[in-house]
Write a protein that binds this DNA or RNA. Structure first.
Length: 304
RNA sequence: GGUUAGGUAGCUCAGUUGGUAGAGCAAAGGACUGAAAAUCCUUGUGUCGGGGGUUCAAUUCCCUCUCUAACCA
């Protein structure tokens, strides 16, 4: 099967991905598939640095503002939906361009996560959550040893999220997650062309610090307050997001404005660092210096 | 000028009954196939403010200088 090339622009937060997309649109007839796990939510605008109304009007963006803030969403779901969107864009004769900072979302779209069609019940998840808080991570880890040896060896760091995930899959299906990974491969007929926008670290951190101030001045606190006023719980996954979790603390009176801004800046830097770790390992990654002209030139020249 | 409390890792501090020191945070690196802006792992040598003294040995005791804070003049 001949694989279709797919342009993917990644990069840490605040590295100018949106702007790069806008530049590209002047040269190519593109539609953007956003691979961003937070811009996908409705109501979260300022803190997620969503593209502006004008930008959204200029280029058709997919997967922005399309999930309720209290919905359970996942990378796998995104991967499948975005793949359909990708096929549709191709069919209409346009060029799809993936832009985003969520590494796992990009992977889910371009490579596909494993696919077994299993939906895990809330009951199983809640039970495991209780076991974690009552019996502790070591007990769960031991459960994993008995049910899924490869995962047991893989998750030596005792990351509760990953152990929980492996166990819930096992309890729901009776099959080890590691086995399912090998059994249900999901190959996509996509040949991704990865481009990463690169900034010197201190310059990137400077941009992040500046942008957080902008967000605050644009009314991040008001936006957060109005979401809470609608009755949504502060513990929603969507609100467990850099920018919002600190602002919630501020609104609750736990920290000052200055502290909130500092914390958001710091946590955004941490986030950016994790993104860079993820992107660095992508094979055949084209690294583009942070000059928009070069971004367009590099991308257009490499797709033909 | 005087008194007191301090000057220990980038920051906030702990500690050594004298044998050259350790936490948290920051920072850096890493993992991550359905919660991923999430979650988790690894990494700590620094003239222990300067100088002198006592001692086999001082960052730790003594003297002195210096800086900071508070209070008293």
């Amino acid at each position: 099967m001949k694989k279709n090339k797919l342009i993917v622009i990644c990069g840490a937060t605040a590295s100018g991905k949106t702007a790069a997309g806008m530049m590209l649109a002047d040269y190519l007839d593109i539609e953007i598939i956003s691979a961003d796990s937070r811009q996908i939510y409705k109501l979260l605008n300022i803190g997620t640095a969503k593209p502006t109304h004008n930008e959204l009007k200029k280029i058709h963006h997919h997967f922005i503002d399309c999930v309720e803030i209290d919905a359970n969403y996942s990378a796998g779901e995104f991967g499948n939906q975005a793949y359909q969107t990708y096929l549709d864009i191709i069919k209409r004769g346009k060029i799809p361009v993936v832009i985003g900072g969520s590494g796992l979302y990009i992977k889910a779209l371009c490579e596909g996560l494993f696919e077994s069609g299993i939906v895990i019940s809330q009951e199983i998840k809640d039970t495991l959550q209780n076991e974690l808080s009552q019996k502790g991570i070591e007990w769960l880890y031991e459960q994993l040893r008995q049910s899924d040896m490869p995962s047991y060896l893989l998750y030596k760091d005792r990351n509760p999220r990953r152990i929980l995930r492996a166990l819930e899959y096992y309890r729901a299906t009776g099959m080890a997650l590691s086995k399912a990974h090998n059994l249900y491969k999901n190959n996509r007929d996509i040949e991704p062309l990865y481009f990463a926008i690169d900034y010197p670290r201190d310059e990137l951190y400077g941009r992040i610090n500046g942008r957080v101030h902008q967000m605050w001045d644009m009314g991040l606190a008001n936006e957060t307050q109005s979401v809470l006023n609608m009755g949504y719980s502060p513990s929603l996954n969507a609100l467990n997001t850099v920018g919002y979790k600190e602002t919630i603390q501020y609104l609750q009176g736990a920290i000052t404005t200055e502290k909130a801004i500092e914390e958001i800046q710091k946590n955004t830097r941490h986030y950016a660092k994790r993104q860079l770790t993820w992107f660095r390992k992508i094979p055949y990654l084209h690294i583009i210096p942070s000059k928009t002209r070069q971004i367009v030139e590099t991308i257009t020249s490499s797709i033909y």
